[in-house]
Amino acid sequence: MDDPVILRVENIVKTIGGQRILDDVSFSVKKGHLKVLIGPSGAGKSTLLACINFLSPPDSGTISLDGKAVDGKSRKELLALRQQVGMIFQDFNLFDHLSALDNVRVALVKVKGLDKRAATNRAMEELARVGLADKSTLYPAQLSGGQKQRVSVARALAMDPKVLLLDEPTSALDPELIGEVLTVIRDLADLGMTMVMATHQISFSASLADEFLFMERGRIVERGAPSQLLARDSGSRTQSFCAKLSELAGDGHCEIAPAPRA
């Protein structure tokens, strides 16, 4: 395990409206690894992700990409950071006035400065990767939730991010549409994309994640390999949280899905 560390998050503190949402959070992600953030809602998972690309600037602490600490006060450094860190949102946030193709293309032209043809080619490649090449002319209003989320993945990937942040990418989807998005995420993991994902899909992510980070009240209270934290006799917070979730879902068990890479 001597992959280089791509993203380092150190001692992040974030207070919103007098309430401490993140309380001294630190972790690091190595190249090609997937870290999964788990925990009850309000634990600070989304805020943590938003702090990493400074959409919600941390009050204190350091974010380093490729070993270089980001100066949150420098506009130039912020824009450069965001180009290299992709983000997937729970409610997709596609640009409603642009076709699927233009959703992917717009930042390639405006941010990366590609000419229109190169941008179109790249955008079509990414749409094909998420299985939506034939939907490129459709507008968000004409796409299903799962398709919208796949367009948003294509949009993020087109920027060649070093890290992808996923904020509950399947939470806003109808159950029958979750699968198509999870498949895309699994393909990315197989291809070695470095990712940090907040999710409630515990058994799915257990098969992909290198480490689980269990968050509660703004702190990471447990961390470890999924197999270790989810072991039936581990007595971990993660295990009991997962058991509660699966009880609510009615499938009555909480364990690691069979290895998908085999």
Binding site: G86, N93, D96, V111
Partner: peptide, 15 residues
Amino acid sequence: IKRGQLRAAQALGMT
């Protein structure tokens, strides 16, 4: 217009 789209644009590195 939902705020999320503005966040998404900024997350892509747009000014």
